[in-house]
Amino acid sequence: MNGRSPIGQTILITGANTGIGRATSEELGRRGARLYLACRSEAKTQPVIDAIRRENEGAHVVFLPLDLGDLDSVRRCAEQFLASGEPLHVLVNNAGLAGQRGATKQGFELAFGTNYLGHFLLTQLLLPRLRASAPARVVHVASDSHYECKNLDWESLARPTRTFMATKEYEISKLCNVLFGAECARRWKGHGVRSYSVDPGTVASDIWRKIPWPIRTVMKRKMISTQEGAHSSLHCATSADVADHDGRYYALSGHDRAPSELAQDPTLARLLWEKSEEWVRAWCDGQPGE
Rank of each mutant, 00 (worst) to 15 (best):
R194I: 06
Y170H: 04
D144G: 06
L121F: 02
R101Y: 02
T167I: 11
T123Q: 14
L121D: 00
S143L: 05
L126A: 12
R186V: 07
V198G: 07
Y147W: 09
P135E: 06
A132Q: 13
A111E: 11
A166S: 11
V193M: 11
K174V: 01
A136M: 05
M165N: 13
K150P: 00
K174I: 02
C176R: 04
P160A: 07
R162P: 01
T163A: 13
G102W: 02
G190K: 12
L97C: 15
R186K: 12
A136R: 03
N94S: 09
G113F: 12
S173V: 11
G118T: 04
V138S: 02
L91Q: 05
G181Y: 04
E109Y: 00
G181Q: 01
L122E: 07
F164Y: 13
E183A: 02
F108S: 09
T114Q: 04
Y147E: 02
P200M: 13
L175Y: 10
L152H: 04
V92L: 14
G190P: 07
G96L: 05
R159M: 08
C176D: 06
Q106I: 04
K168S: 14
R131V: 13
S195K: 15
I172C: 11
V141D: 03
I172Y: 07
V203P: 04
R186F: 03
D199S: 15
S195M: 15
L175F: 06
Q124S: 12
R129S: 07
K168H: 15
G118M: 03
E171N: 14
G102V: 07
E148C: 10
L91D: 08
Y147P: 00
N94L: 07
N94A: 07
Y170G: 09
V193N: 11
S133F: 11
T104Q: 04
Y196Q: 11
H146Q: 13
F112R: 00
A166Q: 02
K150V: 03
K174A: 02
L91I: 05
L97R: 15
L152G: 05
V139P: 04
A204Y: 08
L121V: 01
A204W: 10
R187C: 08
G118C: 11
W188K: 14
V141M: 03
G190S: 11
T167Y: 10
T163V: 01
A95W: 08
K174G: 00
G181V: 02
G201A: 08
W154I: 00
A132P: 04
L175M: 10
A185L: 12
L130D: 06
V92Q: 07
R186W: 05
V193I: 10
G118N: 06
T161P: 11
S156F: 02
K168E: 13
G118R: 06
H119K: 04
V139C: 02
T167M: 07
R129Q: 12
D144P: 00
D144W: 01
E169I: 04
R194K: 15
F108T: 09
L117A: 05
R131F: 00
T163G: 12
A182S: 15
R131C: 03
G102I: 07
Q106H: 06
I172N: 09
T163K: 12
A98Q: 11
G181L: 02
V198I: 14
A103C: 03
C184G: 08
F108G: 10
G99A: 09
L126H: 12
